[in-house]
Amino acid sequence: MAKLLYSATASLDGYIAGPGGDMSWLTEHLTGENATAERLLANVGAILAGNRTFGGDDPNRGTDSEGAFGGQYHGPVFVLTHRPPAEPPEDVTFVGDLHSAVAQAKDAAGDRYVNVLGADVARQCLRAGLLDEVLIFFAPVLLGDGVRMFDDPGGAQVRLAPVPGETAHWYSVVR
């Protein structure tokens, strides 16, 4: 059965996007090979994204690398939103309910990962007890402001445990 994994690249001060969702800061940090990212991509069976993430800034916009995983991901995408577009893009499913979106994405992913993209959707999955793992890549930059990796004022403490045999910053959610 598919696992729900939140993966993101964050600044060292914990931001995944700059003010207003700006992702341009990430461009200079997407160069070179990353064995963990390549292994992750090979094991992603579906993407679950929030509407802001789906329609937001892309550090590779207008290039061959535009899209998830630098344009290398080709598969089912589910977008959690209450405002789907009138003319949705092909191969993208818009879903208005978190549990339904997760179920559909897991079904599409089979025995691979559902990769969660977007801090708000990750927070919702975590609060609902649906998130299984967290993988964070850190870029050597301090943004100072923007969209936090996790922002849940009043939320409960969540314990994480390193995934055995995996790279640093890949954790299981302890239930």
Rank of each mutant, 00 (worst) to 15 (best):
R127L: 09
T36K: 05
Y15A: 10
S7A: 14
T167G: 03
Y113N: 14
R61N: 00
G96V: 01
A168G: 15
T167Y: 05
V141H: 03
A105H: 12
G129E: 09
L48Q: 12
D57A: 12
N43A: 10
A35L: 03
V92P: 07
D97R: 03
D13H: 07
G70E: 02
P19L: 11
D132M: 05
D111N: 10
Y6L: 01
G18D: 03
G165R: 13
D91F: 04
S7W: 11
A42G: 14
I136S: 11
T27Q: 00
Y6F: 04
E28G: 01
L40Q: 03
P140Y: 10
G14T: 05
A37M: 15
E87G: 09
V121Y: 05
Q157L: 09
V102T: 04
C125N: 11
Q157G: 13
V95C: 13
A161P: 01
S7Y: 10
P140W: 02
L117F: 14
A105M: 13
R148C: 05
V95F: 07
F78V: 07
G70A: 07
G96A: 12
V92C: 03
E166F: 06
F94Q: 08
P19Y: 11
G144H: 10
V114P: 12
P140V: 09
A108C: 02
G70F: 00
G55D: 10
A46K: 09
G70Q: 04
C125I: 09
G165P: 06
T9M: 14
R127K: 15
F54H: 15
D57W: 11
V77P: 01
A49I: 08
P89S: 11
F150W: 11
F78I: 01
R61W: 00
P84V: 01
T63G: 05
D64M: 08
D145E: 14
A139K: 06
T167A: 15
G32M: 07
V134M: 04
H74K: 14
F54Q: 06
T63Y: 07
Y6M: 06
R127H: 15
F150A: 03
L160F: 00
Q104R: 08
D22L: 03
F137P: 01
L131P: 04
G50N: 03
G96W: 02
F150N: 06
A35E: 15
D58R: 02
S24K: 14
S11F: 11
G165D: 11
G18M: 03
L41Q: 08
G118M: 01
I136Q: 07
R39T: 12
H29M: 08
V44P: 13
G56S: 11
D22C: 12
G118H: 00
D152C: 12
E28A: 04
C125Y: 02
D132S: 05
R148F: 01
P19D: 07
S24V: 10
Q72V: 00
L4W: 05
A49F: 09
Q104E: 13
W25K: 01
V116D: 10
R159S: 14
R175Q: 10
